[in-house]
Design a protein around this nucleic acid. Structure first.
Length: 820
RNA sequence: GCCGGGAUGGCGGAACUGGCAGACGCGCGGGACUCAAAAUCCCGUGAGCUUCGGCUCGUGAGGGUUCGACCCCCUCUCCCGGCACCA
C-alpha cells in the first residue's frame, strides 16, 4: 500500500536520530581525504524567534551544505549568533529585562527552531559574540589594529542618532536617517574611534576579481560606495596670504577655464580668510544657515548659496587671480574641501556662476562648432571637444588629454595625478552598553594605553544603568571606568565606548574554524584549512556593511600574517526578501507571517519547499502570491510530497518484478544531470520542477504496470537536500537503508543516456561561408537541410547553389523539457 | 545624472545561453468518487479563427543580424536596487 505522507510522524524522530548520530559534524581527522567545503550562512541576530527571512536564507544554505556532503565533501556548516547590539539594550530600557537574559533566551528559542527545521548545523562550533570568551578576542583583534595604526581616535563631524543616543558609521545612515530606528541623523563634532578602511580602498577594488561568484548588484554597490575617481591634485595659492591650497579635480584639462575658487563652508581656513578679507559679517550667517539646512533636509541644499571671502586665488597654470568663495555646495568630506570652479564645463559651477554673476570661460570647444558665446550659454558644455585658450594644450582633444595635462602639472610642480575615494574610515565606537568594550585606558600622562592582552577580556559590568540620557551606561557607571594605567600605574579611566557589532561579525567566520581555541582568536592552520568560505549565503542588506567590513578585516589579518588569503568569501548568494502583498512584512502593517507555525502545521520540509520552489533564490517572494491568505490551504509542495510517498511506496512494493520502462530510465538519468547542474548553479526552483516531473512519470510507469525502482531511489536521494526529513524517512524505512540518505553518494548518470547527437551543417553559397544550422539528430540529412533553409523565401534565394561543406555530429545535453 | 539588474499567460515562474515559447506549480473551469463536504484522482486552461485535420498571431515598443531570435546588435519606454552638489 502506498505510504500516506504525514510529516508529524517522522520529522521529530529524524531530528533526534541526526543529533544522536552526529552526522553533521565536520571532520577534523587528518586522514580524511575528502575535499573540505565551508558552507556559511550569515549568522542571525537573536531579536526573537526566527522569521521568514531566516527560513528563506537558511533553507538555501542548507541545500548547499547537504548537497556538498552528498557530493563527497567534508562540510563545515556552523551556526552562531550576532548577539551584541541595540535591541537587547532597548529591551532592557523599555521592559527592565537584563540584556544578557533577553539575548540568551532568544538564542535558545532560535536554536530550538533551527533544530525543528532540521538544519544541518555542526552544533559543536556554536558561538555567540556576547560571550566573554568571544569578545575577549574581538578586543584582542582591536588591539592588533591599534598597534598597526589601523584603529585611531580623532575628532570629526560624525553621525549622531538622537533617538538611539549613539554615533553611527556612514554605512549605517540611509538617506540621512538612522538605519535602525529611522530617526534623522545629526552632525556632531565628537572624538571617536575609527578603523582605517580607507587605506584598503584600492585593494578592495582590485581584489574584486577574486570574487568569482558574487551577484553583480553587490559588486556595483561596493564599487559605488568606495567611489574611486581619477584626477589630479592642483595647488592654488591665496594671493593675500601666500598659503597654498590643494584642490582635487577629475578634469585638469579644464584648468584654464577656472573663473573662481570655492571653499566648503566647513573648511577650517574660511573664518580666517573671511576676517582677513573683511567679509566675515556676510560669511558667518551663511555658515550658520547652511549648517542648519544640511541637517533639516537634503533638498534644501539645492540652492547655490555662497559668499565672497574678499580674497583671491592664483591659478597655477596661467597665474590668473580669481575670487574665492565659501559655499555649502562644496563638501568638506570629499577631496580637499576646496574646489577650482569651471562654470563653462561643470553644472554646479555653472549654476553658481550664473547666480553670483561670475564669468564663464569656454576652454573646450565642441568639435566643428562655431565659437561659443559664453554669455548666451544656458548649460555647461560637457561633451568631447578641443582645448582652446589653454596655453600649451591648445588644439588637444578633450577629455582624452587629461592624463597628458596631469603629467605636465607634475612635471611643472603645480600638481600631480591622483586618485580620490568616496569611502570614509569606519567609525566603530558606540556610546552604548551592549557591545564589546574598547580595550583602551586613557591615562593623563601616558595617553591612550592598550589593555595588556593577558588582562582581556575587559568585561562589561553586570549592574549598568541603561536609561537613556546623559552619558552612556559605561560612562555613567560609578566604578567601572576607574583603573590604574597599565603603563605607569597612575590613576586612569577606561574608554567607555563599545564596538560596533559589525566588528564582532567581521571575524566570526574565522572563529568557527577554531572553536574554543584559547591561544588566540583562531589558529592559522585551522583557518587556512577551511577558508576561504566555499559558499556564503545571506541578505543583500549587508552589501556595504558586513560584506565590505569583513573583506577589509581579512586583508588586515593577511597583512598581520594571521591568514593566508585576502578574500574571505569568493562565492556569495543573496536570498530575496519575503514580502507580503507587495510590501515588506512589519508589525505596524500587521502582515507578518511566521515560519514556525507553518512548520508545525505542514512540516519543516514543506516550509523549505515553499521557499525554494517559489522562484529564483535571489528574487523576492511575495508570500500572498505563492501561499495565499489561508494558512489551512494545503500547499502544493505538500501535495507533491504526498505523491512522492505514494509513488516511492508503490515502486518499492512492486520491486523489479516487471521491467522499468526505458523512457523512465532515460528520464531518471536526465533528471540527475539536470538537477546536478541546477544545484551547481543554485537554481533550486528548477531542480524541484524536474523532481516533480520525475515523480509524475513514475506514477505513469507504475499505473502502466511497469517498475519504477531505479527512479524512486534516485528521486529520494535528489530530494534529500530540499526535503531532508521526507527523504530520510523514505530512504531508511522504505528502502531499508541503514545509514542516512544525507551520507549517501549523490546519484550519477550515464552520459550516453542524456546526450543526443545534433547535426551541425556548415554550408556555403556562392563560395561564401553562409552559416551553420544545428538540428537534432534523427532527422535525416535532407530533412536537416530543409530545416536549415527555413522559409520558402530563403530556399528560393539559395536553392541550387548551396554546398554542404561539412556535417558535424555533436553530442549535446538534451533539453530536459518533456512533453506529455 | 551615473552604475547595476529587469520586463514572458489570470499568478509564481521555465526554456539546455540561437533551434517545437509557456516546463513545473498556483489559480480557475469541467468531471469521477461522496448523502454532503474535505481530501484524492482524471480532463481542460496564452489569444483569435476553425470544416476539429489544423491555421494565424504571440516573450515591454520599434528597427537590425540570422535559414531560424525570449536569447545577439542598435534606439526607446517603464520597473527595481545602489550612488548622488563626489568637483
Amino acid at each position: 500500500m502506498s505510504r500516506r505522507y504525514d510529516p508529524s510522524e517522522f520529522e521529530p524522530k529524524w531530528q533526534q536520530v541526526w543529533a544522536d548520530e552526529r552526522i553533521y559534524e565536520a571532520s577534523e581527522d587528518a586522514a580524511d581525504e575528502r575535499p573540505r567545503f565551508y558552507a556559511l550562512d550569515m549568522y542571525p541576530y537573536p531579536s526573537g524567534d526566527l522569521h521568514m527571512g531566516h527560513a528563506e536564507a537558511f533553507s538555501g544554505g542548507d541545500v548547499v551544505a547537504r548537497y556538498r556532503w552528498m557530493r563527497g565533501d567534508n562540510v563545515l556548516h556552523p551556526v552562531g549568533w550576532d548577539s551584541f547590539g541595540l535591541p537587547a539594550e532597548n529591551a532592557a530600557i523599555k521592559r527592565g529585562i537584563d540584556p544578557r537574559a533577553w539575548t540568551d533566551a532568544n538564542i535558545e528559542q532560535q536554536a530550538r527552531s533551527f533544530r525543528r527545521m532540521g538544519m544541518s548545523f555542526d552544533w559543536t562550533r556554536r558561538l555567540a559574540v556576547h560571550e566573554p570568551e568571544y569578545y575577549r578576542w574581538t578586543q584582542w583583534l582591536f588591539l592588533r589594529f591599534f598597534e598597526k595604526g589601523l584603529a585611531y581616535r580623532k575628532e570629526s563631524p560624525v553621525n549622531w542618532c538622537p533617538n538611539d543616543q549613539t554615533v553611527l558609521a556612514n554605512e549605517q545612515v540611509i538617506q540621512g536617517a538612522c538605519e535602525r530606528c529611522g530617526a534623522m541623523v545629526e552632525r556632531r563634532n565628537l572624538t571617536q574611534w575609527f578603523f582605517k578602511i580607507t587605506d584598503y580602498a584600492q585593494r578592495l577594488l582590485d581584489d574584486e576579481d577574486q570574487l568569482m561568484r558574487w551577484p553583480e548588484r553587490v559588486l556595483t554597490m561596493q564599487r559605488n560606495w568606495i567611489g574611486r575617481s581619477e584626477g589630479a591634485r592642483v595647488t592654488f595659492t591665496i594671493e593675500e596670504t601666500g598659503e597654498e591650497i590643494e584642490v582635487f579635480t577629475t578634469r585638469p584639462d579644464t584648468l584654464w577655464g577656472v573663473t573662481f575658487f570655492v571653499f566648503s563652508v566647513e573648511h577650517p581656513a574660511v573664518e580666517r580668510l573671511a576676517k582677513l578679507g573683511g567679509t566675515w559679517g556676510e560669511v558667518e550667517p551663511l555658515i550658520q544657515r547652511s549648517r542648519a539646512a544640511s541637517l533639516a533636509s537634503r533638498e534644501a541644499a539645492d540652492t547655490k548659496e555662497g559668499a565672497f571671502l574678499g580674497v583671491h586665488a592664483i591659478n597655477p597654470v596661467n597665474g590668473e587671480k580669481v575670487p574665492v568663495y565659501a559655499a555649502p555646495y562644496v563638501l568638506m568630506e570629499y577631496g580637499t574641501g576646496a574646489i577650482m570652479a569651471v562654470p563653462a564645463h561643470d553644472e554646479r559651477d555653472f549654476a553658481f556662476a550664473r547666480q553670483h554673476g561670475l564669468p564663464v570661460r569656454v576652454v573646450i570647444q565642441p568639435e566643428g562648432s562655431e565659437p561659443i558665446d559664453a554669455d548666451a550659454m544656458t548649460a555647461p558644455l560637457q561633451h568631447e571637444g578641443v582645448m582652446v585658450d589653454s596655453g600649451p594644450f591648445d588644439g588637444e582633444p578633450s577629455p582624452a588629454s587629461i592624463a597628458k595635462v596631469a603629467a605636465w602639472l607634475e612635471q611643472e610642480g603645480r600638481g600631480e595625478a591622483t586618485v580620490n575615494f568616496r569611502l570614509r574610515d569606519w567609525l566603530l565606537s558606540r556610546q552604548r552598553y551592549w557591545g564589546a568594550p574598547i580595550p583602551i585606558v586613557h591615562c593623563p600622562s601616558c595617553g591612550e594605553v592598550p589593555v595588556p592582552d593577558d588582562e582581556l577580556p575587559v568585561l562589561l559590568p553586570d549592574d549598568a544603568d541603561f536609561q537613556l540620557g546623559g552619558e552612556s551606561p559605561l560612562a555613567r557607571h560609578p566604578t567601572w571606568k576607574h583603573v590604574r594605567c597599565p603603563s605607569c600605574g597612575g590613576e586612569a579611566t577606561r574608554d567607555t565606548d563599545t564596538m560596533d557589532t559589525f566588528v564582532d561579525s567581521s571575524w566570526y567566520l574565522f572563529r568557527y574554524c577554531s572553536p574554543g581555541y584559547e591561544g588566540g582568536p583562531f589558529r592559522r592552520e585551522d583557518v587556512d584549512r577551511w577558508m576561504p568560505v566555499g559558499q556564503y549565503t545571506g541578505g543583500v542588506e549587508h552589501a556595504i556593511l558586513h560584506l565590505l567590513y569583513t573583506r577589509f578585516f581579512t586583508k588586515v589579518l593577511y597583512d598581520l600574517g594571521m591568514v593566508g588569503f585576502t578574500e574571505p568569501f569568493p562565492r556569495l548568494m543573496n536570498q530575496g526578501q519575503v514580502i507580503y502583498d507587495g510590501a515588506s512584512m512589519s508589525k505596524s502593517k500587521g502582515n507578518i507571517v511566521e515560519p514556525m507555525p507553518i512548520v508545525e502545521r505542514w512540516g519543516a520540509d514543506t516550509m523549505r519547499l515553499i521557499m525554494l520552489f517559489a522562484g529564483p533564490f535571489e528574487d523576492d517572494i511575495d508570500w500572498k502570491l505563492i501561499a495565499g491568505d489561508d494558512p489551512n490551504r494545503r500547499p502544493g509542495v505538500h501535495s507533491w510530497l504526498g505523491r512522492v510517498f505514494a509513488a516511492v511506496g508503490d515502486a518499492v512494493q512492486r520491486g523489479d518484478a516487471s521491467p522499468e520502462p526505458d523512457a523512465l530510465v532515460r528520464l531518471t538519468h536526465k533528471t540527475i544531470a539536470g538537477v546536478t547542474d541546477d544545484l551547481d548553479r543554485f537554481r533550486f526552483n528548477t531542480a524541484i520542477s524536474k523532481l516533480q516531473v520525475l515523480t509524475n512519470e513514475m506514477r505513469t510507469a507504475l499505473d502502466a504496470g511497469g517498475s519504477a525502482l531505479g527512479a524512486a531511489r534516485a528521486l529520494v536521494q535528489m530530494l534529500a537536500p530540499f526535503a531532508p526529513f521526507a527523504a530520510e524517512e523514505l530512504w531508511r524505512v522504505e528502502f531499508g537503508e541503514p545509514a542516512s540518505v544525507h551520507r549517501s553518494s549523490w546519484p550519477s548518470f550515464d552520459p550516453a543516456l542524456v546526450v543526443e547527437d545534433t547535426v551541425t551543417m556548415v554550408f556555403q553559397v556562392d563560395g561564401k561561408l553562409r552559416d551553420k544550422a544545428e538540428v537534432p539528430a534523427g532527422i535525416d540529412e535532407a530533412g536537416a537541410l530543409e530545416r536549415a533553409r527555413g522559409s520558402d523565401k530563403v530556399l528560393a534565394a539559395i536553392d541550387g547553389r548551396e554546398v554542404v561543406k561539412e556535417i558535424v555530429r555533436v553530442p549535446k545535453l538534451v533539453n530536459f523539457v518533456t512533453k506529455r
